[in-house]
Design a protein around this nucleic acid. Structure first.
Lengths: 220, 220
DNA sequence: GTTTTAATTTAGATTTGCCTAAAAAAATAT
DNA sequence: ATATTTTTTTAGGCAAATCTAAATTAAAAC
């Protein structure tokens, strides 16, 4: 198995999370990794020569099949360590992430597979996210209506039921489309309206009528 | 808690292990770390500015108290992970070292202390080496008579049985006292006399009669 | 369809940790 | 004591990963 630097692994993982739908942009990735756009461009060139991403100047990037495979290996490590920390070492759910960020870069496959076995092949980490198996297979989240999405749970728009011109006009005005990443910040039971936050943008409100027609998947 | 690079940590750990045999030299450390003497010199300058080693050009190096403290933290991490791998993940004793080499650089104190607790505060790693506790205390080797100290084994004088004026006079002339670091360079079976080397000084010879009254501990 | 703005890339530096080759210092041998 | 050998340090460079500032390209606005 090839060996990648911590930095490369962090880029790959970040792209995986951002690319749920559509291509990932330089600025998005720079924001996600708290780095500068110029650094992203440098790294994309390197990952392209290693055939982990598809990338053409100014056109954004996506993981290649190998890149995705690597991303799932890293996510598997991360989530198994999170499970271990919570379940065995009694860390609270909000502490596990930071420590797992370091542990996930220890690359022994045998270590991870034996850890998996020791933990009893858990299927979800302490945040409820699915853990990829030893072959990199991961449970795909089923789609739910935006109305039913839990608060603060990042999700991606994957389907819109009503395709009328009027609704599409509204969606385009709100800058919501297939692949749009969002999360719900507040739910108003009075009229079922929602305050939602789109990635990189300020919060906006949408009506219950609109939300009922939008379907999302949990963002990995 | 300060944060050190993997490279710095590996140097500190290597110096700790080598300095049991006296002052550590550039070539020794380079060999231990499979690197070049020039790289060692570079790193020693850096570790000196961080006050982790005592170092003067051409005179070798030893850890400062802070350096030793750091070394014991790293060794604690290493040995606890080795214990975990062997005991919980059923790695064989000869496989644990390589994986622990990576895990030992994850620096969360909380992680290590909780791991220690989870493992039941083990006192020895799978190779039988003692595990430092959360305060950096490590089981010290018991004291032995200087007569029985192996060749080239760095040790510290910890007790003198005969306290006669005559003997104390001899000891003070030889510049030997409690806490003096020394190692035996040669043993002469004819009269049990020893050629010993005091730190930073040239070799000297002491009689078997004197050596019988001096007790030492292995130097960590 | 220009112009203005925003996003992206390039160019040139910096830091860390390593290298080789040469110089300097210390140790050893004669 | 001097010459030779060994050890250590210095000098200069390289690759990875980052940065800033400037240039270029794409997108948005008018």
């Amino acid at each position: 198995m090839l060996n990648y630097s911590t930095s490369e692994e962090n880029y790959i993982k970040a792209i995986y999370h951002l690319q749920k739908e559509g291509t990932v942009t330089t600025n998005e990735l720079a924001a996600e990794l708290s780095t500068r756009p110029a650094s992203v461009t440098d790294m994309m060139k390197k990952l392209r020569t290693k055939k982990l991403v598809h990338y053409e100047a100014y056109k954004g990037f996506r993981l290649t099949p190998e890149g995705r495979k690597l991303a799932l290996i890293i996510i598997r490590r991360h989530r198994l360590w999170e499970f271990f920390l919570a379940e065995k070492l009694k860390f609270s759910w909000d502490e596990v992430h930071a420590v797992a960020e370091d542990l996930e870069h220890v690359s022994s496959k045998k270590l991870i597979d034996k850890l998996d076995e020791f933990l009893g092949f858990p299927r979800y980490d302490p945040h409820g996210d699915p853990i990829p198996d030893a072959n990199g297979k991961i449970e795909t989240s089923k789609q739910v209506c935006l109305i039913d999405l839990p608060l603060n749970k990042a999700a991606v728009v994957c389907y819109v039921s009503d395709q009328s011109t009027e609704m599409l006009e509204l969606l385009s005005h709100k800058k919501i489309g297939l692949g749009t990443r969002l999360e719900i910040k507040k739910k108003f039971s009075f009229d079922q309206s929602l305050e939602i936050k789109l990635r990189q943008q300020s919060a906006t409100t949408i009506s219950g009528d609109l939300a009922k027609n939008i379907f999302v998947k949990y963002d990995e």
